[in-house]
């Protein structure tokens, strides 16, 4: 049998070709980034419902006109100062924690101190209601209220002291014109969000040693961690994120 020698193909350039292909692929594919500002739209309104009356001092009004100028609480304002103004609104007369007490301002909402003994009393009260409930539905309803009061009690313990709560009707309200640019709109949304986030971060760092975002990220990875959820809830209780937008029909005026 004759021994044939196979001619060897030089494969040295193969690597180069493959590298070229690889680099071409890396350059041409774009990895889609899905980041942005998240918002929950309100459900559609079915009937003409008269909105409940709100107190002027509890609403932080931001208007943006067709020239992208801001009117905040009746005064013209540069966007660079919006965040601080929104923070002042949220802090109001002091949160009882980092911002202690501030003098009351007739244009700002009034935070009220929730006392530990009062919350404890409520917890006891609703515990009795739940055990004495007559049917399942009633029991569930009482249980929900009880859970809420328990969370409040837990928050007071976690934050290491009684704090002052914003009234439930305190909101940031934004309204824009149809000719406002999208950029201006989103920058305003961003500054308002930044105001809440910064206050939350400050409090979270002072009390728990992590920023609020770190707490949330950690919770996402480890959603069994009840302690973490309680901390997040406590921060949210002191600084709720309530940014609403006016109905467009009203905005047209």
């Amino acid at each position: 049998m004759a021994r044939r020698t196979l001619p060897e193909i030089n494969a040295g350039s193969m690597a180069d070709i493959a590298f070229l292909l690889l680099i071409f692929w890396l350059v041409t594919t774009t990895i889609d980034s899905d980041e942005g500002i998240k918002r929950q739209l309100p459900p559609p309104i079915t009937d003409e419902i008269d909105p409940p009356p709100v107190r002027e001092r509890n609403v932080f009004v931001v208007l943006v006109n067709a020239n992208d100028d801001l009117l905040v609480e009746g005064d013209e304002l540069k966007i660079g100062r919006l965040k601080q103004k929104a923070k002042d609104f949220l802090i109001a007369n002091g949160d009882g924690l980092l911002y202690g007490d501030r003098p009351q301002d007739p244009d700002l909402p009034v935070r009220e101190r929730i006392s530990k003994s009062f919350v404890k009393q409520k917890v006891a009260e609703y515990t009795a209601y739940v055990t004495g409930a007559e049917d399942e539905i009633e029991k569930d309803n009482f249980q929900k209220v009880l859970d809420n009061w328990r969370k409040k009690l837990r928050s007071i313990e976690l934050l290491g002291g009684e704090f002052k709560m914003l009234p439930g009707s305190a909101i940031i309200s934004m309204r824009n014109d149809n000719n406002t640019t999208y950029d201006a709109y989103l920058q305003v949304q961003n500054e308002l969000e930044a105001a809440v986030n910064e206050l939350r971060d400050e409090l979270a760092v002072a009390k728990f040693g992590n920023t609020y975002k770190q707490l949330e990220d950690e919770y996402e990875l480890n959603s069994e961690n009840v302690e973490l959820l309680d901390r997040i809830y406590a921060i949210r209780l002191v600084y709720p994120q309530r940014i609403s937008e006016a109905e467009p029909s009203a905005a047209a005026n």
Binding site: D34, I37, R39
Partner: peptide, 8 residues
């Protein structure tokens, strides 16, 4: 109702 305003 869940909306993301995509941004850089």
């Amino acid at each position: 109702l869940k909306v993301l305003y995509s941004a850089g």
